[in-house]
Design a protein around this nucleic acid. Structure first.
Lengths: 201, 201
DNA sequence: CAGTTTTTGTACCGACCGGTCCAGTATAAG
DNA sequence: CTTATACTGGACCGGTCGGTACAAAAACTG
């Protein structure tokens, strides 16, 4: 709603979003009260409503925050290489475990938000589109460099990879165990590798 | 908490659970108030608290209700055949579309419930275990009948299939489009078929 | 310094929510 | 009919929630 105009204001806003991001991820959007967020951020209510016009708007900011985190982490790996892909998958697994099987920061919120309002639903769609695009770009890169076959379709591979990630997260969360996610990611990697160019017939 | 002792009581209880199941699926557990449920079921508050001791207990009943629905629908297909599997997948897709991309009745609730209480989390784990078992049994049947290779692992195939379903549902819900789910299920089916016995080398 | 804008603290509000209570009505058995 | 048990209606309650109001403080601007 209102953009911060000073550095201090920006920091306050960021602190509120960061605190909300953690709580809403752990407990869900609806299950997180503004008072809890403000308490965790060490801010007052007027600060929140100075930068956001409603809880939904804060939730939308939280969604963007998590998207940035996910894409940021992803950028630390060289996805366009096989070893980079594997490292990334391993990092996803380690993250899920370290966060006590709470699920994907984007996926968990996505389901709840998609059922809340049209605005949030659109935000969710956009977030996943951006995630998709970043993956598609990596696969396109692989293909152009001959790491994937010419007839591979980067968009389809990206969608498949996302589905495997989300499916793995969900089962892992439901069963409080990494195993399903390990298996799902292994299968996705195997499928990707099946698109390597054939060296010898 | 309290079991119904008469037929009328049973019907009332069922009506409450059925109404709650629809609303909690569409809006989420937390976002559904007991008043809305009671209103939809045409019941009063004392009836609810006559059969359930808390909202969480009602939510647990809703989870079981959805599990029964899912397993029931699944039983209408001959999963241990290839055409049966395909029909089942198509039915899942048709369902997701007809329910306006609201996601998997079990998966959507699972994420929210897993973050709510230990009891509900355990219920979620149990529900997915049962779903897994019913799939594993079908794949075991296929293997024993020579439709799948001897070295196929039914448990792994079941887990992979569930992950593909859930991943497909989630992306489809996030993007309000069947396509990702179509692709995810197609890939899963392809992977299953790759375990057919080899007829000619 | 004065004046303007941005940021902050907090008391307060009406609405809603989960849960309790109790007085009543139906139902089946003897 | 009597009695015990199962069910039902709805008023009520304490607490919490998202959101508002308003004035004070801090930070820029000139």
């Amino acid at each position: 709603m209102q953009e911060p105009k000073t550095r201090r204001g920006q920091e306050r806003r960021d602190a509120i979003v960061a605190a909300a991001a953690v709580l809403m991820y752990e407990r869900g959007v609806r299950a997180t009260s503004l008072a809890e967020v403000l308490d965790a951020a060490g801010a007052g209510k007027s600060q929140l409503y100075h930068y956001f016009s409603s809880k939904d708007e804060l939730a939308a900011a939280v969604l963007k925050y998590h998207l940035t985190q996910v894409l940021g982490q992803q950028q630390q790996f060289r996805l366009e290489t096989w070893s980079g892909l594997r490292s990334w998958f391993e990092a996803l697994l380690a993250g899920q475990e370290s966060r006590d099987f709470n699920g994907c920061p984007l996926g968990s919120l996505a389901i709840e938000m998609a059922a809340t309002s049209d605005e949030l639903r659109a935000g969710v769609a956009d977030a996943f589109l951006q995630w998709h695009m970043s993956l598609e770009k990596a696969f396109e890169d692989m293909r152009s460099r001959g790491v994937l076959r010419e007839n591979a379709v980067p968009a389809e591979l990206a969608e498949m990879t996302l589905a495997a990630i989300q499916g793995g997260y969900l089962l892992s969360t439901a069963q409080q165990d990494v195993k399903p996610m390990v298996q799902s990611l292994k299968l996705a990697l195997g499928h990707l590798r099946s698109w390597r160019p054939k060296t010898a017939p």
